[in-house]
Design a protein around this nucleic acid. Sequence first.
DNA 1: CTGTTAGCGCATTCAT
DNA 2: ATGAATGCGCTAACAG
Lengths: 338, 338
Amino acid sequence: MPNRKITIEDIAQQANVSISTVSRVLRKSSGVAADKREAVLQAVSELDYRPNVFAQSLASGQSMTIGVITQNFGSPVYDGILQGILLGLEGTDYSSLFADGRWDKTIEQNALQAFVDRRVDGLIFVGGQLSESIMVEVGHKTPLILVARTIGSLAENCIHFDNFQAAYDLTRYLLDMGHRNIAHITAKMHYQETVSDVSQRYAGYAQALTDAGIPVDPQLVVEGNLMQQSGSLAVEMLLMAKRPFSAIFAANDQMAFGARLALYRRGIRVPDDISLVGFDDEIMAAFSIPPLTTVRQPSVEMGQAAAAAILDLIDGKPVANQIFRSKIIVRESVARLR
Amino acid sequence: MPNRKITIEDIAQQANVSISTVSRVLRKSSGVAADKREAVLQAVSELDYRPNVFAQSLASGQSMTIGVITQNFGSPVYDGILQGILLGLEGTDYSSLFADGRWDKTIEQNALQAFVDRRVDGLIFVGGQLSESIMVEVGHKTPLILVARTIGSLAENCIHFDNFQAAYDLTRYLLDMGHRNIAHITAKMHYQETVSDVSQRYAGYAQALTDAGIPVDPQLVVEGNLMQQSGSLAVEMLLMAKRPFSAIFAANDQMAFGARLALYRRGIRVPDDISLVGFDDEIMAAFSIPPLTTVRQPSVEMGQAAAAAILDLIDGKPVANQIFRSKIIVRESVARLR
DNA sequence: CTGTTAGCGCATTCAT
DNA sequence: ATGAATGCGCTAACAG
């Protein structure tokens, strides 16, 4: 354990050099004579010296921390992204500050403020609903990466998943399996300035149907709120509408699980009576009864990409918008219609 | 947005006082004349002043951050705890630094080192496997709270869930429902110096059986690794052992889900043929087919308690070991044996 | 290449 | 109660 009191000065003495030399070898900045460098390193390890981060930050203006603002801590997809960020930052000199905006604009704003006050060197937003203008302003002062959120004027700083394509493919798969009447459980999004993931999924669904010459039946599209519970309700609504359908495409796995439960309660078999697909490939998708056909968001990879990108940004390197794709994961919740 | 350059000096001028006075009102330390205090506050808001955290920390020695080291980012129970910590810290002046030890001793050690270097004012471990001696040493220099981990010599600093009692109750419930041959899926723990949650669950299970006059049948106790997959394997092993059993108690929900899938594959009905209970009450437990009987770990509450405790500790107040209890959540995965 | 010096922005004695 | 003076530990010009 570092002895609380060892400063750069102590090791300067120990190594018979000046403190600037010490600082130099530690910061790996300009060149230092090999022997002196050795002496310094030696002293550092002997005294188990640990630089004072605050002093460093105060003097340099760099905090060596990157702030991460998520929403919805506990959501599998988001947590996967966070995990990826942590992974991507491992081994670097950066630490990460976390905050949970909980989809509340005020909380998010406060978290942002706290991070700005802490002079974070970079900022990663995982989702979020701060206005575009605020984000642009922030991005102007601090390296910024947005994951799972797209803002037109910050396109290069966005890392996201191609929801449209995946939803299109998924719907296409259902069509290929012979389904014509495909219900969709979507969700209402309130984030005006953001093109939401869920609405893109709806778009992919609608496009696939259209391309197949099947008009979208508004009666077969119901709204949930992304939680399991709402998936159950959605099924009830669908059933009440008396419109025949042979498959359900839920905009996320959680709602698919909710739908599954409602069907179970009604004694409707999956996939024998109704086929079901979700979105996200949460771990449970593989262990639901029956295992759920879905599509995986490479969340960990996206998190790692975000970490790499923010590091590049801090480094002054340019970054490019990254769009992740994925393939359908076929499991047993879909039956072929004869 | 704070103008990058406003220091305490600027507002001192603006308010016609010295910087020490400004510092005083900001730090709410010693008394300041009401009018001067007003003037300062006025200037602060007019200039939108934001104190430099590094300078504060450097001068005061306090970092106003608390470090959180978790394992297994993404696990519902742990994430719940993290969420609780974030919640409990909200509104305070503390921010939280996160790191994921991933159950790897080296990574955990590094994370700890990074936090110590950053002079965190408090440390919260969520799980972890650093040796007791290290933990004690750390606790000696920094306020420390352990969640979901118990260390004898740091008993007061531990916040945990009464796994034994819950497992006992759960087993008792199965017994009350008429089950006599109850299998248990546990997990092997390698953390020598820690009394693991899972082994306590096993102990509760064993004790309940013993109290009911039923000897524990080693053939009915199999080991998994807490992941879903291993729950499936466990069932296969159980089935192979040819020992009759009417119920399965999995040490966590994830393994219960895995078990459920294996049973499904075998065409064994739940609860008609076999009853099943899990542990943790993950969200999915309520939406599995059929909904799973389990017991909830109040993880968010534990996280909040941890946050409150660490703040008290920093404040110099004593804290007491907190043990959380919980009740069985009865759902449909258990049938009464006639 | 290396030592000296001046801050970084603020908390805190110390006098007043 | 309040102002002036020190220093926290380090980085970054600045001279040699």
